[in-house]
Amino acid sequence: MSSHAILTIILYIAILLALSYPLGIFIDRVMTGEVISGGGLFRSTEGFIYKVCGIDPRAEMNWLSYALGLISFNVLGVVFVFALQQLQGFLPLNPQGLVNISPDSSFNTAISFATNTNWQAYVGEGTMSYLTQMLGLTTQNFLSAASGIVVVIVLIRGFARHSLQTIGNLWVDLTRITIYVLIPISIIYAVFLVGQGAIQNFDAYKDVKTVQITQFDNPQLDAAGQPIKDEKGAVITEPATTDQQTLPMGPVASQEAIKMLGTNGGGFFNANSAHPYENPTPLSNFIQIISIFLIPAALCFTFGRMVGDKRQGWVVLVTMLLIFLVVTCVVLYFEQQGNPILTNLGVNGSMGNMEGKETRFGVDDSSIFASITTLASCGAVNAMHDSFTPMGGFIPLWNMMLGEVVFGGVGSGLYGMLVFAILAVFIAGLMIGRTPEYLGKKIESYEMKMVAIAILVTPTLALVGTAIAVMTSDGVAGIANPGAHGFSEILYAFTSSANNNGSAFAGLSANTPFYNSLLAIAMWFGRFGVIVPVLALAGAFAAKKKISVNEGTMPTHGPLFIVLLAGTVILVGALNYVPALALGPIVEQLMLPVIH
C-alpha cells in the first residue's frame, strides 16, 4: 500500500475522532433536551415551530404513535417531491426551461430522497430545475437525515429508560436535530466548499469554447432516449467531435454540504463528487470523506453517554473502525495493482487502475472514498465504481451488503449495528445457556422477532429484486455489459437501493418504468422495513425493567464483544449474498487471467 494511502487513513481516523467526540457530546445534550448555552436564536426558532405547528413539546409518544408519525411525515415528503417534479416546468427558478419529469422517474426520485437513499436514475443538470433541487431534494436531504437520527436516539432511549410506555416526541426530536445540528454545520460546510471552488448561483448554464477539439463516441438513441444495441448487446455508437461545452450552473454548495453530512449522496450533477463544481480540490475531497462518517461516529459517543456507559459506545466504534480498515486496505490493494487487461493493451499501469478515476484524486483517494461512501449509506462517488477492478468493485458492493451498519447512514448505521449487537448477545447466550441481555435489558422472543425482520428485510429485497430483473426482458434490457459484469450491475443497483446507499455501479440504464418502480419498492421497504421493527424494539426495551449486572451477565464493553460483534456482522450480514457474489465480481476476478 502506498505511503500516501497509509498517511491519509491515519490522518483521517485522527481527525474523525477529534471532531466526532465533541459532536457526540453535543448531540447528547441536544436530544436529551438540555438548554444549549448561546443558542438563543435556535431556541426561539424551535419555539416558533412548536407554536405554528401546535406541538406540545412535553407530550411523549408510545412507539407506535412515533412510528406512524414518522411514516406519515416521510410519505408527505414523497408526495411533495413527486408533485414538485411533475410541475417544475410551470414553476420559477428554472432558467434552462427544463420540462416536467416523467411520472416514473419522479416517483423513483421522491422515494429515493425521502428514504435517504439518493439513488439517481436521472441526470441532475439535464432534468432538475433549481427549485426542484433546492426545495425538493435538498430539503429531503435534511429531513431524511433527521429521520434516521431520531430513530437511533429513540432506540438508545429505550435502553436508557425502564418501565415506561413512551419513547419521546417525534416532532421535538426532528426539530431539535435539524435546527441545532444539521443546519448549522451545513451552513459552515457550504461556505467552506464555496471557498474551495464549488459554485452557488442561480445563473443560466454557460456555453464555452473548449481549448481542444474533442473526439468521442456518441451512443445512438432510440425514440425513448435509450441506447440502441446490436445483436450482441453492445451499445451502437457513432464518431463525433465538438469544440463546445455547456457548463451547468446552480446552487451546488448548499446541496453538497448536507449531501455528505447527512450521508445522502445525491449529487447536483450526474458525475456527483467527481465533478469539479461539487468537489473541487483534494482538500474538499478529504473533508467530504470526513463529513460522511462524522455524524455516524459522533452517534457512537452519544450512545455511550445516553446509556450511562461510555465503553459501550467505544466498543461499537472500534468494531466499525476495524471493519473499515480491513475493507479499505483490500480495495486499495486491488486498485493499486492496476488492471492486467489494460496493461496488456500497452496502457501504463504504474499508477494503478486509473480507468474511471479523476486525475485530481488518483487511485488512493478514489479507493478510500469508494470504501467510505459504501460503508456509510452515503452513495456519493468521486470515481466510477463500474471501472474498478473486479475485486476492487467487489468491496463497495460487499460493504453495502453488510447492511450499512459500519458507520452506515446517519442514525441508520448505529441502529443497524445495535440490532446486530442484540443478535450477537442472543447467539452468545445460546452458546453458553444463559438468558441473553444487553445493557440491562432481557432479550426475549418479541425482541428477536423484531431483530429477525430488521436483518432479513434488506437481503430479501436485494436478492429477490435482482432475481426478477435478470429473469425479465425489461430487466436485462438495461444492462450495458453482458455477462458477469452485467449481473454485477443489477446486483449492485438492488443492493444499493435496498440498503439505502444510492451509489450506482454505472453501466445500467435504470431510468425506465421497470427499474424506477422496482428500485423504489426496494428503497422504501429497505428503509421502513427496518425502521418499524427498530422502533418496536425501542418501545419494548423502554417498557422493560432494568436488571442489574450479575455473574451471568455477558460483558459487552470489552475486546471479546468487539470480535463477537464483528463476526456477527460479517457472517450474518454478508453470507446471505455469497451465491450472488459468486455469479458477479468473483467469477469476473477468476476470469481475469483467462482474458489476460
Binding site: 411514516i71 406519515s72 422515494i111 423504489a520 421497504f525
Partner: peptide, 30 residues
C-alpha cells in the same frame, strides 16, 4: 399516469402502516 404512481405511494403508506400495526400486535403492546 401520474395518478398510478400516486396510487403506488398510497399503497406503500398503507403497507408500512400495516407493518407497524402488525409489529405492535405481535408484541401485544404498543
Amino acid at each position: 399516469m401520474s395518478l398510478v404512481y400516486f396510487g403506488y405511494i398510497l399503497i406503500f403508506f398503507a403497507l408500512t402502516v400495516g407493518l407497524a400495526k402488525g409489529c405492535a400486535r405481535l408484541g401485544g403492546k404498543k
